[in-house]
Design a protein around this nucleic acid. Structure first.
Lengths: 131, 131
DNA sequence: GTAGATCTTAGAGCCGACTCTAAGTCAAAC
DNA sequence: GTTTGACTTAGAGTCGGCTCTAAGATCTAC
């Protein structure tokens, strides 16, 4: 129905128009974007939804090549569900590993924050720390 | 005591010797690395510990410039604890935001994994999904 | 009908973080 | 005493992911 211009989609997604065109060139869109009167891109709600998925995948560290691979599978249609599942599972593992790493980092930082708060008298308890 | 060669430190930290020299040039080391007989780097345990911190900070997405800034503060010695605290707190916020983002992503992926497992008959319950 | 905004393309440029190359030094092993 | 291999330097190259430029077409409002 609606039909959004690239500018509107940029607004909604937070991606720049440059990046939207770039993602399209990179084959990240599940369907080819419709074109309007003057060859201008006309995005559907589905396009925007799909971009939302891509943005989430990117934000969680999936490289563009992997997103393209997944997109290709989706575009190819039924019959490759096992492959899609494989891609998703692999990424889920990476995300979990990343979360674990972040958790470790958070511990370290929180410890150091505590140390400096103590040193600055922002805390009552005093902890010792190497650095 | 010990005194490790760049190769040994590479082995221990998982960083390449190239990267170790690069980090040093970038000012990421709290103390200047000692040099041995032929001008070869001789790392102390403290150096390796500090590198460990840098690696954690990098792994959690802190840019090298920020790590350098923090390192500069540490190297400058006492008196700038408030600034160090500020750097750490800011990074902690970023890490928390990142964890939240990863969590959202994980939900999405887990949902999709569930969908494909259903489609492939790896599950009993069937869920519907747009893509 | 013209000014200004928004779009089109192909392709160049940029940035962060490495990663590698080339040319050379040095110590230890054979 | 020469080969091997780990080291040294400065600086160039690579890669992913944008980000921007230039030149031009088109729509919208006045």
């Amino acid at each position: 129905m609606s039909g959004l211009s690239i500018g509107q989609v940029a607004e909604r997604t937070g991606l720049s128009t440059h990046t939207l065109r770039f993602y399209e060139r990179e084959g990240l869109l599940a369907q080819p974007v419709r074109r309007g009167s003057a060859g201008h891109r006309v995005y559907s709600e589905d396009d925007v939804d799909w971009l939302g998925v891509c943005i989430r995948l990117r934000a969680s560290g999936m490289p563009l090549t992997d997103i393209r691979r997944y997109t290709d599978l989706v575009r190819a249609g039924q019959g490759n569900e096992a492959e899609r599942l494989e891609v998703l599972r692999r990424h889920r593992e990476r995300v979990l590993a990343q979360m674990h790493e972040l958790d470790e980092c958070l511990k370290l930082i929180t410890h150091k924050v505590g140390v400096y708060e103590s040193r600055l008298g922002l805390r009552d308890d005093v902890v010792e720390c190497v650095q």
